[in-house]
Design a protein around this nucleic acid. Sequence first.
DNA 1: GTCCCTGCAAACTTTTTGCATGAAA
DNA 2: TTTCATGCAAAAAGTTTGCAGGGAC
Lengths: 150, 150
Amino acid sequence: MLTTWWQNRLFGAGYRLTAPREIVIDILIETDNHLSVEDIYVKALKINPSIGLATVYRTLDLFAQIGIAQKFDFGDGKARYELTDNPKKDHHHHLICIRCKAIIDYSDFMKEELRLMDKTQAALSQKHQFKIMHHTIHFYGICEKCRKSH
Amino acid sequence: MLTTWWQNRLFGAGYRLTAPREIVIDILIETDNHLSVEDIYVKALKINPSIGLATVYRTLDLFAQIGIAQKFDFGDGKARYELTDNPKKDHHHHLICIRCKAIIDYSDFMKEELRLMDKTQAALSQKHQFKIMHHTIHFYGICEKCRKSH
DNA sequence: GTCCCTGCAAACTTTTTGCATGAAA
DNA sequence: TTTCATGCAAAAAGTTTGCAGGGAC
């Protein structure tokens, strides 16, 4: 039986393959963006109604630790997660409304941004002896709708 | 009597000048980085022991809305705030440890980053009709200490 | 068989809200 | 004098933890 990239990571870091972990990964794989923990939990319940919320939290935290997923905080009070490498969605950054918390993904200037990010990352890794796993770029402002509704 | 830049912003947006707002601004001005709400509250209590935590939350949220301060979420479960323009601290970005939540400020490649950010910001403002107020760049990874303590 | 992982419930932390009082304009 | 803002307390929301039973290897 074939082991997938994420199973390799799990085993490589000394963890076991369990049903909840498979369910959470499947949900992340088939979704294209930033689900909240609650979102993931609700989807997981439909697959296995006995899964616990605490397990979902623990699983997502584990995935972030071993680099399978990224944790995002957009300032709306809930953590969100996204696969580190999602075949359904290219690398992108975010535009966030500080009023209504809407999130818009963008990928303009990605090539230039990534070139600069790679360079910066290399320098920072070296200088601070950090093992950098990912980065985020967020622009905060007020969206069209919120500007109009004053 | 002279009105300061932040007072102008307050009045301009139709808000009143109150003691708690002055206290919070003073704390932000004299500190150079990302204080948590609790940090700010504790400092405020020393100046005026009757100030309420809820007021600090409301004040900081207001400051973020009108562009006086920036709200940051580093993934440690608490919001942090920093002045938008702090004379004591140049523009910088962040390196965050996903294990111990340590935050390191950096300002390498700032000139290049800012040039690219300005360009991106202009394009995004236009394209999405967003009024962009600020941006953040975060690198996430594992710090030297956490790597060593496995 | 051993040790890790899970589900459940309770606890904890951070943030928000309602409301009567008090202060700014 | 009219609103707006505050302080307090209670509630809500999100996340973490302890523990006993069950499952992966």
